[in-house]
Amino acid sequence: MKQFETTLPEQYEALKKQANYTSSWRDRLEAVKTLSDYKHDKVIDLLKNRMQHDTVHQVQVAAYEALAAFGEDVEKPAPARFDIIKNTDKIFLRVKKSLPKDHTVADFADKLKRMRIDVFDAYEGDKGAEFMNWLEQRWAKL
Rank of each mutant, 00 (worst) to 15 (best):
E65C: 13
E65T: 09
K127A: 04
D110F: 15
D83T: 06
G128I: 07
A129S: 06
M132H: 10
H53K: 11
K127I: 01
D118R: 09
V32K: 00
Q52F: 08
R28I: 01
Q11I: 15
K76V: 03
M1C: 09
S36D: 08
D54R: 04
T34V: 13
W139L: 05
K90E: 13
D126K: 14
S24Y: 05
D41R: 08
R81L: 08
E130R: 15
E30G: 03
D102M: 12
H53I: 05
Y64W: 14
K16I: 00
K127W: 09
L67D: 00
A19K: 01
T6C: 10
W134G: 05
Y21S: 11
D54L: 08
S36P: 05
A19N: 02
E124M: 10
G71L: 06
Q52Y: 08
R50F: 04
D54A: 06
M115Y: 12
R26N: 06
V56R: 03
N87K: 11
S36F: 07
D126Y: 14
A80Q: 05
D45L: 15
A78V: 04
V59F: 04
A63F: 13
D27W: 09
K2M: 11
F120I: 04
I85Q: 06
E5A: 12
Y21G: 01
F108M: 08
R28Y: 02
F82H: 09
F120T: 01
K111H: 07
K42V: 03
L15I: 03
L112G: 00
A68T: 03
W139T: 02
E5C: 09
I44P: 00
D37M: 14
S36N: 08
L99G: 02
A140K: 07
M132W: 07
L15Y: 04
A106L: 12
R116K: 15
M51S: 09
E124F: 09
M1N: 10
H40G: 02
K42D: 13
K2A: 11
P77K: 02
D89Q: 12
V43E: 05
M115P: 00
D37S: 14
L35K: 08
P100E: 07
K76A: 13
A78P: 00
H103Y: 15
Q3D: 13
D27R: 11
E72C: 14
F92Y: 15
L29W: 06
I117V: 12
T6H: 09
D107G: 06
A140P: 03
F70M: 11
D89F: 11
Q11H: 12
K33H: 04
A109P: 01
L67F: 02
K33T: 01
F82E: 09
A69M: 10
K141F: 14
D37I: 01
R26G: 04
D107Q: 10
H57P: 00
Q18N: 14
H103P: 04
P9W: 09
F131C: 05
V61D: 03
K39W: 01
R138A: 08
T88M: 13
F4E: 03
R28T: 00
P100V: 10
N20P: 01
T6P: 04
K39I: 00
L112P: 00
A122Q: 11
V59L: 05
I85S: 03
F82D: 06
M115I: 10
A63C: 13
D41A: 12
R26F: 06
D89I: 06
E13N: 15
L46P: 00
T22H: 12
V59I: 04
D118C: 11
S98L: 10
K16D: 02
Q52G: 07
M115V: 11
K86G: 05
K96Y: 14
T34A: 15
K86E: 14
